[in-house]
Computed example of a mutant assay.
Amino acid sequence: MKSISRIVVFMLIIMAVLNAKNIVRYYFPLKYSGYIVKYSKEYNLDPHFVMAVIKTESNFKADIRSNKNAIGLMQITPDTAKWAAEKMNIRDFREDMLNDPEFNIKMGCWYLNNLKTEFNGNMKLVLAAYNGGRGNVQKWLKDSQHSADGENLQYIPFKETDKYIKKVEVSYKVYEYLYGEASLDASLVNL
């Protein structure tokens, strides 16, 4: 009887190890992947990166509003949204449009791409600007206490922004690991 229970326990452990990836996938879902893939491609971004940003910003909760008044999946503030809508030639922009997952992802991807262009593809700077503000990042790059070369940050004075970058980087690695090099195509779409 003891040997049977040991075998059962051993088999349960093997099954748990084999299922570990599926368990982690529960916490790192592919929600809204159709929109993410669509707008990542349109705005030249890695879909895993966009998913990591959304995971960090809102944990895929579309109807969330932060204490800083950031709205939706990608936590876009109304002021940033108004500015982005103008640059994107979106007429009749209304703040409530940020509650729509597709619109929020589209605008968030556009904004990430805009920052990517400004910061020459340096995704750490993109994340710092997305969280801490592009003006602050430009200021930090000019300050020798924060940047030795004016192109990279050695020190980020906002602890929240520093933690944010690290969280997105970890989530990005998890998404790459879980969903691999495989293209996020229609078979993974979960709107």
Rank of each mutant, 00 (worst) to 15 (best):
A84F: 02
Q75A: 12
N120E: 15
W83Q: 03
R65C: 03
G133Y: 07
N67W: 06
I64N: 09
C109S: 14
N99A: 10
E118A: 14
E86I: 03
M74E: 07
Y130E: 01
N89T: 08
W83Y: 09
N69L: 09
L73Q: 04
D96M: 11
W83P: 01
R134N: 14
M97K: 11
I76A: 00
K106L: 12
I76S: 01
L73I: 04
F103R: 02
L115V: 06
M123N: 10
M88T: 11
D100P: 11
R134M: 14
T77Q: 08
M88C: 05
F119L: 10
N99T: 09
A81S: 04
M97D: 13
A84G: 01
N114Q: 14
M74S: 09
Y130S: 01
N104D: 06
G121T: 12
E95F: 07
I105H: 10
M123G: 03
N120Y: 15
F93N: 09
K124I: 12
G108D: 02
F103Y: 06
A84Y: 03
I105G: 13
E95S: 07
R94G: 09
R65L: 03
T80I: 00
I105C: 13
L73E: 05
D63K: 14
N120Q: 15
K124S: 11
I90C: 03
A128D: 03
D96K: 12
N89V: 06
G72H: 04
N67V: 02
L98V: 03
T80H: 00
F103S: 02
F93S: 08
R65A: 05
A62L: 08
K82E: 09
G133M: 05
G72T: 09
F103D: 01
K124G: 08
W83K: 11
A70K: 04
N69Q: 07
K68R: 11
L112N: 04
Q75E: 14
M107T: 00
P101G: 14
N113H: 15
K82L: 08
K124C: 04
T80R: 00
E118S: 11
L98M: 03
A129D: 02
F119Q: 06
L112R: 07
K61N: 13
N104M: 07
D92N: 14
N122L: 02
Q75C: 10
G133C: 07
T77R: 13
W110D: 08
N99P: 03
M97F: 12
F103M: 06
K106C: 10
A62F: 14
R91W: 01
C109T: 13
P78W: 12
R134D: 14
Q75K: 12
N120G: 05
E118V: 09
M123H: 08
D92F: 07
L125N: 02
A85N: 03
T80D: 00
R91N: 13
P78H: 07
M107W: 01
K116T: 13
K61V: 13
I64L: 14
P101L: 12
P101M: 08
I64F: 04
K82Q: 14
K106Y: 13
K61A: 09
P78K: 07
Y130C: 01
N122F: 01
L127T: 02
D92P: 00
L98G: 05
K116M: 07
L125Y: 05
S66V: 12
L73D: 05
D96L: 08
P101K: 09
D79C: 02
N104W: 09
P78N: 05
L125W: 06
R65D: 04
D100M: 06
Y130T: 01
W83T: 06
K61D: 10
N99L: 15
K82H: 10
